[in-house]
Structures are given as structure tokens and as C-alpha cells.
Nucleic acid binder design. Structure first.
Length: 224
DNA sequence: TTGTGATCATCT
DNA sequence: AGATGATCACAA
């Protein structure tokens, strides 16, 4: 196997996964199922990347497939096609966010092209029996891009002005900022008031479920 | 410790 | 119930 060399190849591989359960995929790749799924939150995402032969690239920022400019994301969907969770995009570069611009941001690079891989999610299906759905490729349309940009620039501006303490998950129509850390005690440096750096918790950019719900409605091959 | 993959658990 | 803030595991 080799990494997908084109969007067509990537999509073909992803769609070949449709209908398989988590347990089946794990078996195909000789991966033991976690005893406690609650403690293996990234397992499904990593399993799908493995199944697509999309390899992790340590130390490299940007999309999972840099050559194609495509990011792979699993998304848990209920039977009626609603996302169960928000979607993590990337960490806030708090140490250098003052110098960031939307056009060259990691958020924009990652969301420019996304392969969404739906994962069945409901109270009646056991974790290991969840099935992969039909994947699709997406790019933000003009309105979505404008919304993402406005949210990103608002967050960037606030942090750059030393307002990290005022930045919570209630801001942002589509893109929000939430804690992203090993524990509540984790700390990183961020711009503070009067040029004095402050210490705060690490944050990440997330896509609100209301936003991805719209993406699903307009793009999911299964309709809905 | 930071970045990758996310979901958990509590609050409103 | 949906949203917010907190947390889990792993690699380098």
C-alpha cells in the first residue's frame, strides 16, 4: 500500500470502508480493540487513517495529506445524520498568534479540503459494532469561508491584544476556541496586558456541531 | 511538553 | 438536550 496519490484514489479507498465496523477494521489491521473505549478517544480516527494508509507525519503542520492538501476527519453521526460532537481542528499557536494571518493559518490550510468519514453513533450500537458510513470530500463555500475567517480573525485579534482570558467557547459562529490540554493544570505562555506575557491553559480551535451539521446536510451522499 | 487523534462529563 | 470546559492516549 502507498499513500493515496489523488483525491479520487483517496475517496475510492474511503468508500470501500463503508459498512465495515470498528471491530472489523481493527481486525484487518491486527490492532487490539481498546478495553475501555472511553480511554481511547482517538482510536477510531487513527484506525481510519491507517485503513486509508494515511500516515502520521510527526512535526509537520498542515493537512494529513500535504501533497493533496486534504485533511481526514472522522465525524460521529447519529441515525438522523446529526453530528454528536464538535470537531477539533488544531491547537492555537498562542506563542506566535500575534503574527499569524488567516491566509496562512493552520485552520485555513486544514479546512480548505476535508475528507469527512462518518462513523455511526447511537445508543443502541455497541462501540466496536459502529459502522463506517459513506465518506465525502468537502471544501467550504464562500459563505462558510467568510464565517470561518471572521471567527478566526476575531479570536486572533483578541488574543493578540492580550484578551485570552476573555476568549471562551461562546465566541465564534462556526469556529470556537476551547481548552485542549492534558489536564486542567497545563499552562502555556500567551500575550498578556501591557506587553506582559501571561500564563494560560492551552486551547484548540473546534468546529461547532451546528456548523458541521450544515456541512452534512448539504454534502452527505446518503442525503439528509 | 507539544501536537496528533478526539470524546467525556458537567452545567445551563 | 446542547453547549462548554475538562480530559484520555500516544508519539516525538
Amino acid at each position: 500500500m502507498h499513500e493515496p496519490a489523488s483525491e479520487a484514489e483517496l475517496l475510492l479507498r474511503a468508500r470501500a470502508l463503508a459498512g465495515r465496523t470498528i471491530a472489523e477494521l481493527a481486525g484487518l489491521h491486527a490492532l487490539p480493540l481498546p478495553d475501555e473505549p472511553r480511554r481511547a478517544k482517538g482510536f477510531v480516527g487513527e484506525l481510519v487513517e491507517r485503513a486509508l494508509d494515511v500516515r502520521p507525519r510527526p512535526g509537520v503542520a498542515g493537512p494529513d495529506l500535504p501533497r493533496l492538501g486534504v485533511e481526514v476527519k472522522t465525524i460521529p453521526l447519529t441515525a438522523d445524520g446529526r453530528p454528536r460532537e464538535s470537531t477539533f481542528v488544531c491547537t492555537l499557536p498562542l506563542g506566535r498568534i500575534e503574527r499569524e494571518r488567516w491566509d496562512t493559518s493552520a485552520v485555513r490550510a486544514k479546512l480548505a479540503r476535508v475528507l469527512w468519514v462518518p462513523i455511526e453513533h447511537g445508543p443502541r450500537v455497541a462501540w466496536a459494532a459502529r459502522r463506517v458510513g459513506t465518506a465525502w470530500l468537502w471544501s467550504p463555500d464562500v459563505d462558510e469561508e467568510a464565517t470561518l475567517r471572521a471567527d478566526w480573525e476575531a479570536a486572533q485579534g483578541l488574543v493578540a491584544r492580550g484578551g485570552i482570558d476573555a476568549l471562551d467557547a461562546r465566541r465564534g459562529a462556526a469556529l470556537q476556541v476551547r481548552p485542549k490540554a492534558r489536564s486542567g493544570r497545563a499552562r502555556v505562555r500567551a500575550p498578556g496586558e501591557d506587553e506582559v506575557p501571561t500564563s494560560t491553559m492551552p486551547r484548540g480551535f473546534y468546529l461547532r456541531a451546528s456548523f458541521t451539521a450544515r456541512v452534512v446536510r448539504t454534502c452527505y451522499p446518503g442525503g439528509r
